[in-house]
């Protein structure tokens, strides 16, 4: 019990650091793809320290300040509900659907905070994010339902348990189409190109973040760092069979890496196109996968 609580306290910090390193690696890898040298892999940690050291940043009100706080809190709670590296904390108390809803707390809190900023760019960013969400959530749910039906359970631990015993038992093989659909959805969930419309810096001045600077932005970076782990972690747990702590992070980085490669070479969709894209091809792939699962 004490070990669990210590782990619960330690794990978010570990995940934040690892997540920031993921982001740094992402910049490095993107730079290498661009034939650049790129920043050091710990660049994002420096960024966060700098952001927290900044003073006198604009504050539009209580909700504006609470937005990033809730964003971090929401992500941390989601983190505690997914099993990381065979170390389940609270995932016995909630299943995939609970997690899907817990995942929403963070963006919702942030969206409310952004709203008080009274910057139309922020609102447009949120509107785009929500539209995109309507797009990918359908795909994600189609895939998740397939997994739940295949496993006969919505509990993460049960799903991971069924995938034990080597690569061949991973759900990615029987549920390949669902995994593919989830991976396409993941591209938008992670906010990578071609689905980074919500924060398109060239169109709407980084959208939701437009009014956030200093420590607020730092918290949003932390939020993003956890989000990457959580979101890739869902994929790892659903399709790649979890794994021990190191393996788990390796798998999760592999998932992230795929998204990164696509991100590095892609332009950006128009938001309408992105929405339409999700409701056509990935949804169709996922539905075919779902039907296959339902039949067999």
């Amino acid at each position: 019990m004490t070990g669990q609580i210590l782990w619960a306290i330690f794990m978010p910090i570990l995940v934040i650091i690892i997540g920031l390193i993921y982001m740094g690696l992402a910049r490095k890898i993107t730079a290498r793809i661009h034939n650049r040298y790129g920043p050091p892999f710990y660049q994002n940690i420096i960024d966060v320290i700098k952001l927290f050291s900044k003073k006198d940043v604009a504050n539009h009100g209580v909700m504006f300040s609470l937005g990033p706080v809730i964003a971090v809190a929401g992500m941390v709670i989601s983190l505690l509900f997914i099993p990381i590296g065979n170390r389940p904390l609270l995932s016995f108390n909630g299943d995939i659907i609970v997690l899907l809803y817990l995942l929403v707390i963070a963006p919702l809190g942030m969206a409310l905070g952004v709203g008080e900023g009274a910057n139309p760019n922020g609102a447009i960013g949120i509107a785009r994010a929500l539209t995109l969400m309507l797009g990918y959530e359908v795909v994600l749910v189609i895939a998740a339902v397939a997994v739940m039906i295949h496993a006969g359970s919505a509990s993460f631990m049960e799903i991971i348990r069924q995938q034990q015993g080597g690569v061949a038992h991973w759900f990615i093989w029987p549920l390949f189409l669902s995994a593919l659909a989830t991976d396409i959805a993941l591209q938008a969930i992670l906010g990578e190109k071609p689905f980074d419309q919500p924060i398109a810096p060239h169109e709407i001045a980084s959208g939701p973040m437009v009014e956030y600077g200093g420590k607020f932005l730092g918290m949003l970076q932390i939020y993003h760092a956890i989000a990457i782990i959580v979101e890739t972690g869902i994929f790892v747990n659903l399709f790649l069979g979890g794994g021990s702590l190191v393996w788990w992070f390796v798998k999760s980085f592999a998932v992230f890496f795929v998204a990164l490669l696509i991100n590095a070479v892609m332009p950006r969709f128009r938001i309408g196109q992105a929405f339409k894209f999700y409701w056509t091809y990935p949804a169709a792939i996922g539905l075919v996968g779902l039907i296959i699962v339902a039949i067999t």
Binding site: A31, R36, Y37, P40, V57, S206, M209, E211
Partner: peptide, 22 residues
């Protein structure tokens, strides 16, 4: 910014709004 001089290796990166910039 681009590959020849690559200012990002110093951690310098362009931002969209003054709120975020140093």
């Amino acid at each position: 910014m681009t590959s020849r001089y690559d200012m990002e290796r110093f951690g310098i990166t362009p931002m969209a709004t003054p709120r975020q910039a140093d």
